[in-house]
Write a protein that binds this DNA or RNA. Sequence first.
DNA 1: GATGAATGAGATTTCATTCAT
DNA 2: AATGAATGAAATCTCATTCAT
Lengths: 213, 213, 213, 213
Amino acid sequence: MSTEETIEPTRSASSRVQRKRGRRIQEILTAAAELFGERGYDAVSLEDVAERLDVTKGSLYYYFSSKDELGTAAIETLGTEWTARLQKLVDGTSGSAADRLRALIHEHVLIAVRDHPAALQVFLVPRRWPHEQRESIKELRQRHDRLFRALIEEGVAAGEFTVTGVDTVLQCMHAAMSQAPVWCADLPARAQYEAVDEVADTLMMLVGQAPPE
Amino acid sequence: MSTEETIEPTRSASSRVQRKRGRRIQEILTAAAELFGERGYDAVSLEDVAERLDVTKGSLYYYFSSKDELGTAAIETLGTEWTARLQKLVDGTSGSAADRLRALIHEHVLIAVRDHPAALQVFLVPRRWPHEQRESIKELRQRHDRLFRALIEEGVAAGEFTVTGVDTVLQCMHAAMSQAPVWCADLPARAQYEAVDEVADTLMMLVGQAPPE
Amino acid sequence: MSTEETIEPTRSASSRVQRKRGRRIQEILTAAAELFGERGYDAVSLEDVAERLDVTKGSLYYYFSSKDELGTAAIETLGTEWTARLQKLVDGTSGSAADRLRALIHEHVLIAVRDHPAALQVFLVPRRWPHEQRESIKELRQRHDRLFRALIEEGVAAGEFTVTGVDTVLQCMHAAMSQAPVWCADLPARAQYEAVDEVADTLMMLVGQAPPE
Amino acid sequence: MSTEETIEPTRSASSRVQRKRGRRIQEILTAAAELFGERGYDAVSLEDVAERLDVTKGSLYYYFSSKDELGTAAIETLGTEWTARLQKLVDGTSGSAADRLRALIHEHVLIAVRDHPAALQVFLVPRRWPHEQRESIKELRQRHDRLFRALIEEGVAAGEFTVTGVDTVLQCMHAAMSQAPVWCADLPARAQYEAVDEVADTLMMLVGQAPPE
DNA sequence: GATGAATGAGATTTCATTCAT
DNA sequence: AATGAATGAAATCTCATTCAT
């Protein structure tokens, strides 16, 4: 019993510390991802990141050994979280391929516009990132694409969709969705929601689905 | 008379000089636009630009009084040239709105992929540019959009096109076209041409045009 | 009586703690001395020292209040231990001044090469140490020199040795002995021992002793 | 003729610039070598170097792309100049091997003590330098050693010298000579000269030459 | 006793900009 | 027109030190 008493606190203490560290890292990554997405990797200084977190530059180095590493990690978290949300949506939705694809597009754009108003840029322009990060970006992009590709192929197989080529449709869709936050940024909240809806309708046309009405 | 004699050579000399200056400026702008497109404004140093031109940093200041000015000018030339080429195409083509729009899209993507790989990025992510330049970019973007918008509205009016909303369609089209060079960059020359064709077919679906066959 | 009973265990406990503390300090000093010797004072960070000991930086501050203090202490222990070993050798050896000097040199170089590779550098280049430590180093150096000086003067007085000047001989000897580990570091174990022997023979020539054979 | 007039100035202008650049680099290297020698590589900041030259830190990067590179170059110049001076002395001296070796030792120590009061340290403790530089140091050291080795071997062959082993003698000599500036630094000018003389006499004993008188 | 976190001063490095020639 | 040199501000990065737990 006494053993348990001694060990338990120790163990939980260590893991509490671990969790705390994890949380801190997430905070940093979130802030960083936001800034990088907003202004681009090069335009963001560590000072900027530190300031948003209200710590000093030096502290960042306690968690990440370089700006590049922070950049890579930021992308990774961002992409992982995003993909997870979309995956969950796909898993939880039923209906025709069209219904589900539309929901997926809608959700994607909504996340982009509402939650990460600028972070998506990161996935659009890998050319601007240092070498290391590009791989990271590519991989995330692929994970992301798989969700869409699966649905599109399903719809095509079922005769629901008409497409020129799946790859090209995917690319165009992705480009448009990622760009959406840029032009929706300045709209008032309500208009934003409508805009997202319209984007979804518009992009459904890429697989041959006529707009409603 | 003697005045003319003296002045004439001077004038033509001076204009020869002028022309040479103009040519030099064009060279610089082309190099700069390429680099800015490839790596983003911040990631490009004047040293990089100078090196590509095989001159020294200092020389650039003979033509442009700051990096920002060079940036603005580079965008402007790029956009102007581009728009001019598209305008010419529009003027020289006849047929249905669909035919002309498809030709326009095709040309746009072709220029992007073949002639200015990466440079188009500039128009996609204005957020990464210093304030001053954004206006410049926006304006060019508008000039550019007008070409497309006119054709789309014409098609809609003629009952040829079905759209969700012209603005949204324009944005999606633009995003996809500008993004094309990124994913087409690695394809072999022949495949590139086919890819461009497919992009055009795909984007025509945004206005309700079914793909060929 | 009751007092004694209470105090005794306390005292021994406290002294056990003391001993443990002492041992920990020794461990730290040894690690630090090695590192300082290997790379020089400035090139060694407390992080380096901590890592070698598998503790955190912060912990070092429990034992030493600054890097400088750690540095001074490291030198001091190193020097004290070293001098003690040599002193013991001198005390335990008899024979001619030549025999004893040779044994002393041999032992010195052996310790340097085998036990503290690099640590001796510390005594060679005081210029690289912060002001405070230099005094410390100088004093140790003197204590150290006294052993050699006594023997040399004895040999000179006895007519055994011929020297140019005792000071100069001492300096040259010291320099060569301290440098030995650098060039012997890469030799295989056996060759190392022979090398040490040869160094001893060589340095004996500085007091006019012809090499054996 | 006119061609000559145009080309000549151009050519000489360019080479004048070249020479000037070379001179500037030498100035920097001299200052850097002094400081590195005085305090050690790590203890010297670029700020220090810049200040001694009365320029800003940034300027140093116009000539050297990193501190390491500056370090390597500084060593190289120092070593090259040094070796050249010794070589010249060897070439210009005649007499017995003993005479010439003594002159060489004398000159070496004199340069060290008088001209580069601390720079020699650099050659003594390569362990403290970043990897790249060590090779550089080793090579210089070898070039340097060759001068001494040749003379010693000549003296041994001629029966003038008695040695334990050439390698060991060389190492001991080198160590002592390089260390000399440290202990001679504080002597008054006259005493310094005498000290150098005595060092030479002392080190000659390493090859079996009895001191004068 | 020891740790993880944070700090702040200072080091290295980059780069737009200026200027004499 | 063009260059080489220099500058200074700002960015990245390092590290001795402090402190709450």
